[in-house]
Amino acid sequence: MIVYLLCFILFLVGLFGVLTKRNVIKIVIGLSIMEFSIFLFFALIGYIDEGLAPIIVQNISSTKFVDPLPQAMVLTAIVIGLATNSMLLAIAIRLYKKYNTFDIRKINSLKG
């Protein structure tokens, strides 16, 4: 159970970063930390004690495999995370070009 708790703490660390940091890049890093805590949670869901990697090879002895589905899901989610992160960073660079700062307090042309 302790691993799930650690995983949740990692999530909170990321959330703390997103909520308190003023630097655009640090906000992106905070989001990635949250993302990876959830990937970790998925990997933990599928874990079985003494389970083998679910790949069929010759002379296999054990019949106990870890659940492959969460692993497949994590891989897909990592690909999606890659897309969102690169999108965020691209926007961050463009923002820097327009505002000459990474400080989120100074990026405030939209109000109301």
Partner: peptide
Amino acid sequence: IEKEELEASFKYQVLGGLASLLILFSIG
């Protein structure tokens, strides 16, 4: 890619990313 568009998109992405993570967590 003007000031307002980029800022709006950044806000949208941070909150949208948070929403996606919550959904993924719930699916887990």
